[in-house]
Design a protein around this nucleic acid. Structure first.
Lengths: 390, 390
DNA sequence: TTGAATCATCAAGTAACTTGAGTTAATGCC
DNA sequence: GGCATTAACTCAAGTTACTTGATGATTCAA
């Protein structure tokens, strides 16, 4: 059965929690904001906002940041996020390694780490994740009470699907709910998402989408994924597997193929390997691009058409404010790809009065998956949630 | 600027309104349900639910429907929607005609009408819509106080986009917000959506998706549209233009074409016209299909591949519980199309333990747009909305 | 017939928001 | 410089709607 997302009833306690998170999100989005302005925007009384602000202050989540100069009247006291008011652990599980990071409340990384992962079984992976968490908290010297939770990123899709057996996803979690499992093992609230969704959240928490409510993130991992954000919430689908754009059929050089065979890191690595160039790191790829290696340039040229088609699909199906490109490739390659795309005229995103670019490059670089993992936790702390049950 | 959907704060009044709508939605979805069961599912106390139920009873929105036989304990009093507790006006504006309907609270049509539309200007269209509303209310003999609102369906996309100028959309609303405009003119709360979104809502209110939270509706109108429902809410995109799947590039006979050139009512009409068969109604098309007209059969054969590709795109991008096909074609043709589609193995929807079909035919038939217009209003009455501002 | 289970109601208690009066702090005008 | 104006902020009382706990109602099972 599908993930249950039944709406829950509102009572005083949940209303307060909702309002706290709403206020926090407005503070995050505005950078600096005063109480009266929050009240005006939120439909609450200034008194209510005042009470909530004083709560958040004493919890250390926000801080007073002077008064704004205005034309007339008492200048409003401004509040902003207090970066050290809380921290999130981000853990990215890849087939061969575990990456970990600690993020502050503003989404800035305090510490990162990488550990080789040899285990493939549930117990072994769990042990490695627990160890990674302990080590990164120790490295960053954060008081455990300040840890808001852990975000875990792993390759999807989740559960048994027609995409199972590609080797990328973790079949050990077909029978176990990964969130409940890791929450137990880590003794923390846990959010689990695939890499593309996490990357989208990362851009919202501390990237180019901090004030964009509705956008899509095209994530270049080993395959190709799409994270869809709609009104500040992820579009996850009935089973949390939305965004598997890599398996969409496209035409490439006259043949029908899955999009990610033409457009992904594995695809470019394979193409380069065919001419004897082995790259297994983003740095390596960056060097090959800097040298304008012909094999890479032909790959990029061939990638432009399927990428253009993918963008037209995303724009017309989801009507995002913008599409962000990012993931496991060098920034220079994303910039090149963005430059080489033909943006379709026949698209709902082709508007005369646009204020954002149709394509942006993500801000969180190659660590976007791991940072995204932490961002999931931060984001959840900022997301009002009366509407949907956990 | 994108549609603003900032989260709003919760207070006592909004909490009550939210809870009322949540209770109503649970009653709708269950058909019959008792107070204690609602309380258990919603996280509210039985007392709170009791109070809300008594409110809804005195407003006439629900009715007592006997007691359920249980194993032990006091048998719970069951409640169900009271169809005549409220009514919705649905109006569908097409380039050449205005369709209107009155729906009861359960989504059943009480009356329908059709009027030719000659006007293309704002004043003329408005006048026709106002007249259609007055006439349908008069025909159905509904007390104005029982009208919950009006839903209006018109061809998208909304605002100036790269799809403008195809002739289908109403450019008169490029500068005016249609919802505010019609709300003023009709003196009722108004919801405006495109046909595909309305059709999706219709299936949820009174169709095959009444207990499916996350699905997609592939709507065959003059073009092709997609209505996306996620957790019981429409995925509308940043500007309300999500779901323009007709302009998505897909593969047909080895070439990339816009989907709706291969798959839409206009497409089949054109194909038939090429061999001298003119059909301009759904009945006409049904007759041609009944006769197994070769030209139609070749069109259907050719349509299978792009339709299959479109379904793979929808499944992998949105991970819906199911995809519903419907709109301006005869049921028999939808059934034929569903039978001829090749469902991709490489899809997140290809799950071993499915409980719903991957494809369903919509239940609301050819009037789905008009009924959907009314369903928008019913749906809104049932949708808790603390989370998003109007 | 009695006890267990469940639903339902009543009345009191509580959390969180709203309201309205009053205070603080800055600007702008005479 | 003094005073009106404007806007932010605070205090205390008032209101709403939910929760809690005690009590009653209804059914089944032993």
């Amino acid at each position: 059965m599908a993930i249950s997302t039944k709406t829950v009833g509102a009572n005083a306690g949940r209303a307060r929690s909702h309002n706290r998170q709403m206020v926090l999100d407005r503070v995050r989005q505005a950078g600096q904001i005063g109480r009266a302005e929050i009240a005006r925007g939120s439909g609450l009384s200034t008194q209510a906002v005042s009470n909530i602000i004083s709560d958040l202050l004493s919890d250390g989540l926000i801080s007073e940041q002077g008064r704004k100069v205005t034309t007339r009247g008492q200048p409003p006291v401004q509040y902003g996020l207090n970066p050290c008011g809380g921290y999130a652990v981000g853990i990215e599980i890849r087939p061969d390694a575990i990456f970990a990071a600690i993020l502050d409340l503003c989404g800035a990384p305090i510490a990162t780490s990488r550990r080789t992962l040899r285990a493939r079984d549930l117990a072994g992976v769990t042990k490695a994740v627990v160890a990674a968490k302990a080590a990164i908290i120790d490295k960053a010297q954060i008081a455990p009470s300040k840890i808001l939770g852990a975000g875990i990123v792993m390759p999807g899709p989740f559960g048994r699907t027609g995409l199972s057996g590609t080797g990328s996803e973790f079949s050990i979690f077909h029978e176990v709910s990964p969130a409940a499992w890791f929450s137990d093992a880590l003794d923390l609230p846990v959010v689990v998402e695939n890499d593309a969704n996490a990357a989208a959240v990362a851009e919202r928490v501390a990237g180019v989408a901090s004030d964009i409510e509705t956008f899509a993130f095209l994530y270049f991992g080993n395959g190709l994924g799409l994270g869809v954000m709609q009104n500040g919430r992820l579009v996850r689908g009935a089973f949390g597997n939305a965004g598997e754009i890599g398996h969409v059929p496209v035409i490439s050089v006259g043949r029908t193929v899955a999009l990610e065979t033409a457009l992904s890191r594995l695809s470019v690595q394979k193409h380069l390997a065919d001419v004897g160039i082995d790259v297994d790191s983003s740095d390596g790829l960056a060097a090959v691009f800097d040298a304008r290696e012909p094999a890479l340039m032909t790959w990029l040229e061939a990638a432009a058409e399927p990428l253009s088609n993918a963008i037209t699909i995303i724009e017309n199906l989801l009507d995002p404010d913008t599409i962000i490109l990012g993931g496991a490739m060098p920034d220079a390659i994303f910039d090149h790809l963005i430059g080489s795309v033909t943006l379709a005229d026949r698209s709902v995103s082709h508007r005369p009065n646009r204020t954002t670019e149709r394509l942006l490059r993500g801000a969180s670089g190659r660590m976007t998956g791991t940072l995204g993992a932490g961002a999931l936790v931060i984001n959840r702390a900022f997301t009002p949630r009366i509407a949907a049950a956990a």
